[in-house]
Simulated assay, not measured.
Amino acid sequence: MDHPTLPLGLYQYEHTAALFDGTVTINGVDATFTTAPIVSDIFQGMVRGDFDVAELGLTYFLRTFVLEDPPFLALPIFPNRNFRHSAIFVNTASGIEKPQDLAGKTIGEFALYGHDAGVWPKGILADDYGVTPDQCRWVIGGTNHPIPSFDWIPQPMPADVDIRHAANDETLGAMLEAGEIDALISVDVPQALLDGSPEVARLFPDYQTVEREYYRRTGIFPVMHVVAIRTELARQPDLALAIYHAFTEAKEIPARRYRDRAAKRHMAVMTPWFSELFAENQRLLGEDWWPYGVEANRTAVDTFLRYHHEQGLSTHQLTSEDIFVPDLLRT
């Protein structure tokens, strides 16, 4: 008997490779996987109806809840996560030496007001340093290349925050290096920093130490993206569970490879001292350092949901019970 066809949009990560090459299949469906060189193109494809299941940035997913009939629910699968103290950059002549100095400054933000790698730093700045978005001026745009406004997704703008979009020919990275903005929050690293420009630095130069301390204190490994499913398909619990199990199995393949190859000091990896880094990360993050499921991620997800509401991006504060497929809430 033929299985139903299920089009999925997904970036190619090492923990999704087994889905693309067919090593892992989704039980009961004929899945077709589509990727893109820019992950936001996958997001846009899901919004315009190209996929039944797809990776969505967490804020892109949450913005659809302002619609009268929200089209998606989330599966507790988190293909992209990253610590984000390292996503805050400053102009070295701006007088910003500590987080509190951001108050009163002009800050660039990549792509849209409240992108995934922006919601986290803004929330952390508010919680830990008392700097809230309304204390700053904001310029939205591309970091290393100009990008237009993402008009294909709802863009709520809090009334008490000064926000404008950069001109069509401007990049936030160049504006930061020139001192036209004082700071930048961006998923992309400014090219000026990569090129060694003395005009651009990270707000937290020793960001790895700061981020590790943040994890020890909070237990949060920030989630960036979820896998979303159309609401009509989410009513099929066997389908949702099959997708969840397949993604979990695919993730375990590279995780097991990292664990098994520690005895040979990961000799297939080009990065020097990688085994020491892997061992240090395991000591801090645990055996399953990239967990799926609701319970293992509840603190991180609920913190993001709080930040999203506090930053004026959600009309009310959502909960994990609001956004995840009900049959997967016990995962």
Rank of each mutant, 00 (worst) to 15 (best):
M1K: 06
H3Q: 14
H3D: 12
L6C: 03
L6I: 03
P7K: 12
L10T: 10
V24R: 09
V24K: 13
N27M: 11
A31N: 14
T35L: 04
D41G: 02
Q44A: 10
V47Y: 02
R48P: 00
R48I: 05
F51E: 00
D52L: 05
L58W: 04
Y60S: 14
L62F: 09
L67C: 02
E68L: 07
D69Q: 12
P76Y: 13
I77P: 03
F78Y: 08
R81Q: 14
T92I: 06
A93E: 13
A103K: 10
F110I: 10
Y113A: 03
D116L: 15
W120Q: 08
P121H: 14
L125M: 15
D128Q: 11
T132H: 14
C136Y: 12
V139I: 15
I147F: 02
P154T: 08
P154F: 04
P156I: 09
D162L: 07
H165M: 01
N168M: 06
N168R: 06
D169N: 07
L176V: 14
G179S: 00
E180A: 14
D182E: 08
D182T: 08
L184H: 09
I185G: 07
Q191D: 12
A192C: 03
P198N: 01
V200A: 09
A201L: 03
L203H: 06
F204H: 14
E213T: 10
E213D: 11
R216A: 13
P222A: 09
P222W: 15
A228Q: 12
I229M: 09
I229Q: 00
R230E: 11
T231K: 03
D238R: 02
L239H: 01
I243E: 13
R256F: 01
R256T: 09
R257M: 12
D260V: 04
F274D: 04
F274Y: 11
L277R: 06
L284R: 13
V294S: 02
E295A: 04
A296L: 03
L305N: 00
Y307V: 08
H308Y: 15
H309R: 13
E310N: 13
L313N: 13
Q317A: 07
F324L: 10
P326A: 11
L328S: 09
L329Q: 11
